[in-house]
Protein backbone atom coordinates (compact mmCIF):
# COMPACT_ATOMS: atom_id res chain seq x y z
CA UNK A 1 0.00 0.00 0.00
CA UNK A 2 1.11 3.54 -0.72
CA UNK A 3 0.00 6.35 1.47
CA UNK A 4 0.66 10.06 1.16
CA UNK A 5 -0.09 12.27 4.14
CA UNK A 6 -0.50 16.05 3.83
CA UNK A 7 2.15 16.45 1.15
CA UNK A 8 3.37 19.97 0.40
CA UNK A 9 5.82 20.59 -2.44
CA UNK A 10 7.30 24.00 -3.18
CA UNK A 11 9.63 24.97 -6.01
CA UNK A 12 11.48 28.28 -5.70
CA UNK A 13 8.99 29.50 -3.15
CA UNK A 14 5.99 28.52 -5.26
CA UNK A 15 3.72 25.88 -3.81
CA UNK A 16 2.89 23.32 -6.49
CA UNK A 17 1.23 20.71 -4.28
CA UNK A 18 -0.79 21.66 -1.25
CA UNK A 19 -1.70 19.46 1.72
CA UNK A 20 -2.37 16.46 -0.46
CA UNK A 21 -3.28 13.10 1.01
CA UNK A 22 -4.24 9.88 -0.69
CA UNK A 23 -3.84 6.15 -0.33
CA UNK A 24 -3.47 3.43 -2.92
CA UNK A 25 -4.37 -0.16 -2.00
CA UNK A 26 -2.29 -3.24 -2.72
CA UNK A 27 -2.75 -4.48 -6.26
CA UNK A 28 -4.60 -1.34 -7.28
CA UNK A 29 -4.14 0.46 -10.59
CA UNK A 30 -4.31 4.08 -9.54
CA UNK A 31 -4.12 6.93 -12.04
CA UNK A 32 -3.25 10.58 -11.51
CA UNK A 33 -5.09 12.51 -14.20
CA UNK A 34 -4.98 16.21 -14.89
CA UNK A 35 -3.95 18.93 -17.31
CA UNK A 36 -0.31 19.88 -17.89
CA UNK A 37 1.26 21.58 -14.90
CA UNK A 38 -1.35 20.33 -12.41
CA UNK A 39 1.33 18.65 -10.29
CA UNK A 40 0.65 15.01 -11.14
CA UNK A 41 4.22 14.22 -12.24
CA UNK A 42 5.56 16.09 -9.21
CA UNK A 43 3.36 13.95 -7.00
CA UNK A 44 4.62 10.78 -8.69
CA UNK A 45 8.21 11.95 -8.22
CA UNK A 46 7.43 12.56 -4.57
CA UNK A 47 6.44 8.91 -4.25
CA UNK A 48 9.59 7.77 -6.09
CA UNK A 49 11.76 10.09 -3.99
CA UNK A 50 13.09 12.32 -6.75
CA UNK A 51 11.21 15.25 -5.27
CA UNK A 52 11.52 16.01 -1.59
CA UNK A 53 8.29 17.40 -0.18
CA UNK A 54 8.59 20.42 2.09
CA UNK A 55 6.03 18.83 4.38
CA UNK A 56 4.13 15.56 4.71
CA UNK A 57 5.01 11.88 4.78
CA UNK A 58 5.21 9.06 2.26
CA UNK A 59 4.51 5.47 3.33
CA UNK A 60 5.16 2.44 1.16
CA UNK A 61 3.96 -0.91 2.53
CA UNK A 62 3.51 0.66 5.92
CA UNK A 63 7.04 2.01 6.15
CA UNK A 64 7.79 5.71 6.30
CA UNK A 65 10.12 6.24 3.33
CA UNK A 66 10.01 10.06 3.38
CA UNK A 67 13.67 10.38 4.29
CA UNK A 68 14.90 7.60 2.00
CA UNK A 69 16.58 8.32 -1.33
CA UNK A 70 14.96 6.79 -4.44
CA UNK A 71 17.45 3.94 -4.57
CA UNK A 72 16.31 2.72 -1.16
CA UNK A 73 12.55 2.83 -1.70
CA UNK A 74 12.20 -0.46 -3.54
CA UNK A 75 9.98 0.89 -6.29
CA UNK A 76 10.13 0.50 -10.06
CA UNK A 77 9.81 3.54 -12.31
CA UNK A 78 8.92 3.67 -16.01
CA UNK A 79 9.83 7.05 -17.42
CA UNK A 80 8.06 9.03 -20.11
CA UNK A 81 10.93 8.62 -22.57
CA UNK A 82 11.78 5.19 -21.05
CA UNK A 83 15.29 6.40 -20.04
CA UNK A 84 16.91 3.24 -21.37
CA UNK A 85 20.68 3.51 -21.00
CA UNK A 86 21.70 4.16 -24.60
CA UNK A 87 25.22 2.75 -24.22
CA UNK A 88 24.02 -0.61 -22.90
CA UNK A 89 22.34 -3.50 -24.70
CA UNK A 90 18.79 -4.51 -23.89
CA UNK A 91 20.21 -7.34 -21.80
CA UNK A 92 22.50 -5.04 -19.82
CA UNK A 93 19.71 -2.54 -19.29
CA UNK A 94 17.52 -5.21 -17.74
CA UNK A 95 20.45 -6.67 -15.77
CA UNK A 96 21.46 -3.27 -14.36
CA UNK A 97 19.31 -3.44 -11.24
CA UNK A 98 20.52 -6.96 -10.43
CA UNK A 99 24.15 -5.99 -10.87
CA UNK A 100 23.66 -2.94 -8.67
CA UNK A 101 22.14 -5.18 -6.02
CA UNK A 102 25.23 -7.40 -6.25
CA UNK A 103 23.35 -10.40 -7.64
CA UNK A 104 25.42 -13.43 -8.62
CA UNK A 105 26.23 -14.05 -12.28
CA UNK A 106 24.20 -17.24 -12.16
CA UNK A 107 21.16 -15.36 -10.95
CA UNK A 108 21.57 -12.68 -13.63
CA UNK A 109 21.99 -15.35 -16.32
CA UNK A 110 18.87 -17.02 -15.04
CA UNK A 111 16.56 -14.07 -14.45
CA UNK A 112 17.33 -11.64 -17.26
CA UNK A 113 16.55 -14.01 -20.16
CA UNK A 114 13.33 -15.01 -18.43
CA UNK A 115 12.34 -11.38 -17.98
CA UNK A 116 13.10 -10.68 -21.64
CA UNK A 117 11.15 -13.76 -22.68
CA UNK A 118 8.18 -12.74 -20.59
CA UNK A 119 7.86 -9.39 -22.32
CA UNK A 120 8.62 -10.75 -25.79
CA UNK A 121 11.94 -9.05 -26.54
CA UNK A 122 14.23 -12.05 -26.02
CA UNK A 123 15.29 -11.90 -29.66
CA UNK A 124 16.60 -8.36 -29.20
CA UNK A 125 18.72 -8.95 -26.11
CA UNK A 126 21.97 -7.91 -27.78
CA UNK A 127 20.55 -4.81 -29.47
CA UNK A 128 21.02 -1.27 -28.28
CA UNK A 129 17.86 0.63 -27.31
CA UNK A 130 18.09 2.85 -30.40
CA UNK A 131 17.59 -0.22 -32.59
CA UNK A 132 14.21 -1.03 -31.03
CA UNK A 133 10.76 0.25 -31.91
CA UNK A 134 8.88 2.45 -29.46
CA UNK A 135 6.77 -0.44 -28.23
CA UNK A 136 9.79 -2.69 -27.70
CA UNK A 137 11.58 0.07 -25.78
CA UNK A 138 8.52 0.42 -23.61
CA UNK A 139 8.56 -3.32 -22.84
CA UNK A 140 12.26 -3.24 -22.00
CA UNK A 141 11.68 -0.29 -19.67
CA UNK A 142 8.98 -2.27 -17.86
CA UNK A 143 11.15 -5.40 -17.65
CA UNK A 144 14.01 -3.33 -16.27
CA UNK A 145 11.79 -1.74 -13.63
CA UNK A 146 10.41 -5.14 -12.55
CA UNK A 147 13.65 -7.13 -12.46
CA UNK A 148 14.24 -6.57 -8.74
CA UNK A 149 10.85 -8.09 -7.95
CA UNK A 150 9.26 -4.85 -6.85
CA UNK A 151 5.54 -4.87 -6.22
CA UNK A 152 5.17 -1.11 -6.72
CA UNK A 153 5.50 0.34 -10.19
CA UNK A 154 5.25 4.00 -11.10
CA UNK A 155 4.50 5.10 -14.67
CA UNK A 156 5.06 8.68 -15.84
CA UNK A 157 3.04 9.20 -19.04
CA UNK A 158 4.54 6.03 -20.52
CA UNK A 159 2.45 5.98 -23.68
CA UNK A 160 2.78 9.58 -24.79
CA UNK A 161 5.57 8.79 -27.26
CA UNK A 162 3.66 6.06 -29.10
CA UNK A 163 1.24 6.32 -31.99
CA UNK A 164 -2.50 5.88 -31.38
CA UNK A 165 -2.80 2.20 -32.33
CA UNK A 166 0.26 1.09 -30.37
CA UNK A 167 -0.92 3.13 -27.42
CA UNK A 168 -4.02 0.99 -27.13
CA UNK A 169 -2.05 -2.25 -27.44
CA UNK A 170 0.51 -1.19 -24.82
CA UNK A 171 -2.23 0.10 -22.54
CA UNK A 172 -3.79 -3.34 -22.46
CA UNK A 173 -0.38 -4.99 -22.00
CA UNK A 174 0.45 -2.80 -19.04
CA UNK A 175 -2.89 -3.64 -17.46
CA UNK A 176 -2.29 -7.37 -18.12
CA UNK A 177 1.16 -7.27 -16.49
CA UNK A 178 -0.24 -5.38 -13.51
CA UNK A 179 -3.03 -7.91 -12.99
CA UNK A 180 -0.83 -10.95 -13.60
CA UNK A 181 1.90 -9.87 -11.18
CA UNK A 182 -0.45 -8.26 -8.70
CA UNK A 183 1.40 -4.96 -8.87
CA UNK A 184 0.43 -1.77 -7.17
CA UNK A 185 0.63 0.87 -9.88
CA UNK A 186 0.53 4.64 -9.84
CA UNK A 187 0.11 5.88 -13.36
CA UNK A 188 0.32 9.48 -14.56
CA UNK A 189 -1.43 10.65 -17.68
CA UNK A 190 -3.17 13.68 -19.09
CA UNK A 191 -5.19 11.51 -21.48
CA UNK A 192 -8.63 10.96 -19.97
CA UNK A 193 -9.52 8.13 -22.38
CA UNK A 194 -6.38 6.29 -21.32
CA UNK A 195 -7.16 6.90 -17.66
CA UNK A 196 -10.75 5.70 -18.00
CA UNK A 197 -9.68 2.60 -19.89
CA UNK A 198 -6.88 1.40 -17.63
CA UNK A 199 -7.57 2.42 -14.04
CA UNK A 200 -9.21 0.92 -10.99
CA UNK A 201 -9.40 4.40 -9.51
CA UNK A 202 -8.52 7.84 -10.79
CA UNK A 203 -7.51 10.99 -8.92
CA UNK A 204 -8.42 14.07 -10.94
CA UNK A 205 -5.94 16.82 -10.17
CA UNK A 206 -5.88 20.53 -10.86
CA UNK A 207 -3.55 23.26 -9.60
CA UNK A 208 -1.77 21.02 -7.10
CA UNK A 209 -4.94 19.64 -5.52
CA UNK A 210 -7.04 16.55 -5.94
CA UNK A 211 -10.51 17.45 -7.12
CA UNK A 212 -12.02 13.99 -7.00
CA UNK A 213 -11.02 10.39 -6.50
CA UNK A 214 -13.18 7.60 -7.78
CA UNK A 215 -13.68 4.74 -10.19
CA UNK A 216 -13.76 5.67 -13.89
CA UNK A 217 -17.49 5.08 -13.99
CA UNK A 218 -18.14 7.18 -10.89
CA UNK A 219 -16.04 10.05 -12.24
CA UNK A 220 -17.90 10.00 -15.52
CA UNK A 221 -21.41 9.62 -14.21
CA UNK A 222 -21.14 11.62 -11.01
CA UNK A 223 -18.37 14.23 -11.25
CA UNK A 224 -17.89 16.10 -8.01
CA UNK A 225 -17.48 19.53 -9.52
CA UNK A 226 -17.48 21.46 -12.75
CA UNK A 227 -13.75 20.90 -13.34
CA UNK A 228 -14.01 17.12 -13.05
CA UNK A 229 -17.14 17.19 -15.18
CA UNK A 230 -15.63 19.19 -18.05
CA UNK A 231 -12.19 17.58 -17.86
CA UNK A 232 -13.45 14.02 -18.15
CA UNK A 233 -15.55 13.26 -21.20
CA UNK A 234 -17.35 15.75 -23.38
CA UNK A 235 -20.08 17.97 -21.97
CA UNK A 236 -22.36 20.79 -23.08
CA UNK A 237 -23.66 23.43 -20.76
CA UNK A 238 -27.41 23.92 -20.96
CA UNK A 239 -28.75 27.49 -21.03
CA UNK A 240 -30.14 28.24 -17.59
CA UNK A 241 -33.57 29.26 -18.85
CA UNK A 242 -34.26 25.66 -19.84
CA UNK A 243 -33.98 24.52 -16.23
CA UNK A 244 -37.19 24.28 -14.27
CA UNK A 245 -37.42 26.93 -11.57
CA UNK A 246 -34.31 28.58 -13.00
CA UNK A 247 -35.07 31.96 -11.47
CA UNK A 248 -34.59 30.58 -7.94
CA UNK A 249 -31.93 27.92 -8.35
CA UNK A 250 -28.41 29.20 -8.97
CA UNK A 251 -27.11 26.08 -10.67
CA UNK A 252 -25.13 25.29 -13.77
CA UNK A 253 -26.32 22.28 -15.73
CA UNK A 254 -24.15 20.09 -17.94
CA UNK A 255 -25.08 17.18 -20.10
CA UNK A 256 -23.09 14.43 -21.86
CA UNK A 257 -23.47 14.09 -25.66
CA UNK A 258 -25.15 10.69 -25.40
CA UNK A 259 -27.78 12.18 -23.10
CA UNK A 260 -28.98 14.80 -25.61
CA UNK A 261 -31.58 12.60 -27.25
CA UNK A 262 -33.03 13.32 -30.66
CA UNK A 263 -36.83 13.86 -30.77
CA UNK A 264 -39.45 15.61 -28.69
CA UNK A 265 -39.74 15.10 -24.91
CA UNK A 266 -41.03 11.62 -24.00
CA UNK A 267 -42.00 12.22 -20.37
CA UNK A 268 -43.38 15.16 -18.52
CA UNK A 269 -40.25 16.05 -16.64
CA UNK A 270 -37.94 15.70 -19.68
CA UNK A 271 -36.47 18.98 -20.85
CA UNK A 272 -37.45 19.31 -24.51
CA UNK A 273 -36.33 22.08 -26.82
CA UNK A 274 -35.56 22.85 -30.44
CA UNK A 275 -32.09 23.34 -31.85
CA UNK A 276 -30.65 24.23 -35.21
CA UNK A 277 -28.04 22.01 -36.81
CA UNK A 278 -24.61 23.62 -37.29
CA UNK A 279 -22.40 20.74 -38.35
CA UNK A 280 -22.37 16.97 -38.65
CA UNK A 281 -19.12 15.05 -38.16
CA UNK A 282 -19.11 11.46 -39.34
CA UNK A 283 -17.11 9.24 -36.97
CA UNK A 284 -17.77 5.80 -38.41
CA UNK A 285 -20.02 3.94 -35.99
CA UNK A 286 -21.58 7.20 -34.79
CA UNK A 287 -21.90 10.78 -35.83
CA UNK A 288 -21.40 13.91 -33.82
CA UNK A 289 -23.94 16.68 -34.13
CA UNK A 290 -23.10 20.25 -33.30
CA UNK A 291 -26.33 22.00 -32.39
CA UNK A 292 -27.26 25.51 -31.38
CA UNK A 293 -29.95 26.72 -29.04
CA UNK A 294 -29.88 30.49 -28.72
CA UNK A 295 -26.31 31.33 -27.78
CA UNK A 296 -25.56 27.87 -26.43
CA UNK A 297 -23.66 25.31 -28.47
CA UNK A 298 -24.53 21.70 -27.68
CA UNK A 299 -22.82 18.48 -28.70
CA UNK A 300 -25.00 15.45 -29.31
CA UNK A 301 -24.40 11.99 -30.67
CA UNK A 302 -26.48 9.99 -33.09
CA UNK A 303 -26.18 6.61 -34.82
CA UNK A 304 -24.42 6.87 -38.15
CA UNK A 305 -27.60 6.03 -40.08
CA UNK A 306 -29.46 9.00 -38.63
CA UNK A 307 -30.17 11.58 -41.36
CA UNK A 308 -29.63 14.91 -39.73
CA UNK A 309 -30.52 17.09 -42.72
CA UNK A 310 -28.87 20.19 -44.10
CA UNK A 311 -27.22 22.89 -41.98
CA UNK A 312 -29.75 25.10 -40.16
CA UNK A 313 -32.24 22.25 -40.14
CA UNK A 314 -34.39 22.37 -36.99
CA UNK A 315 -33.92 19.33 -34.73
CA UNK A 316 -36.01 18.70 -31.65
CA UNK A 317 -34.09 17.19 -28.73
CA UNK A 318 -34.77 16.31 -25.10
CA UNK A 319 -32.73 15.62 -21.98
CA UNK A 320 -33.89 13.47 -19.07
CA UNK A 321 -33.85 15.26 -15.79
CA UNK A 322 -31.85 12.40 -14.25
CA UNK A 323 -29.09 12.88 -16.79
CA UNK A 324 -28.38 16.47 -15.79
CA UNK A 325 -25.08 17.15 -14.03
CA UNK A 326 -25.79 20.09 -11.71
CA UNK A 327 -23.22 22.25 -9.94
CA UNK A 328 -23.47 25.36 -7.83
CA UNK A 329 -22.51 28.42 -9.81
CA UNK A 330 -19.76 29.13 -7.32
CA UNK A 331 -18.05 25.77 -7.84
CA UNK A 332 -14.96 26.43 -9.94
Amino acid sequence: MIELQEIDVTFDGKRVIEKLSLSVSDGEFFTLLGPSGCGKTTLLRTVSGFVNPSAGRVYINGQDVSARPPEDRGIGVVFQNYALFPHMSVYDNVAYGLRTAGASRARIRDEVPRALERIGVADHARKKPAELSGGQQQRVAIARALILGTKVLLFDEPLSNLDAKLREVMRDEIRDIQTRLGLTVIYVTHDQQEALAISDRIAVMNAGKIRQIGSPRALYTAPADRFACTFIGETSRLPSHLLPGHADVKKEAYVRPEHIRIGAAEKNDDLGFETSLERVTFLGARQRLQLRHGNARLIAEAPSDFIAGAPDAVIAVHVRRSDLLLFDEASA
Binding site: E71, R73, V77, P86, H87, I147
Partner: peptide
Protein backbone atom coordinates in the same frame (compact mmCIF):
# COMPACT_ATOMS: atom_id res chain seq x y z
CA UNK B 1 18.38 13.40 -16.20
CA UNK B 2 15.89 10.52 -16.42
CA UNK B 3 18.80 8.15 -17.11
CA UNK B 4 20.41 9.01 -13.80
CA UNK B 5 17.05 8.74 -12.08
CA UNK B 6 16.34 5.40 -13.73
CA UNK B 7 19.63 4.05 -12.35
CA UNK B 8 18.81 5.54 -8.97
CA UNK B 9 15.40 3.88 -8.95
CA UNK B 10 17.22 0.60 -9.65
CA UNK B 11 19.23 1.06 -6.49
CA UNK B 12 22.47 2.63 -7.76
CA UNK B 13 24.21 5.11 -5.46
CA UNK B 14 25.88 8.33 -6.69
CA UNK B 15 29.33 6.87 -7.34
CA UNK B 16 27.96 3.85 -9.16
CA UNK B 17 25.67 6.06 -11.24
CA UNK B 18 28.59 8.30 -12.11
CA UNK B 19 30.74 5.33 -13.11
CA UNK B 20 28.13 3.26 -14.95
CA UNK B 21 25.89 5.91 -16.52
CA UNK B 22 27.39 9.41 -16.59
CA UNK B 23 30.99 8.51 -17.39
CA UNK B 24 30.28 6.08 -20.28
CA UNK B 25 27.82 8.55 -21.78
Amino acid sequence: PALDEAAQALGAGPLRRFASITLPL
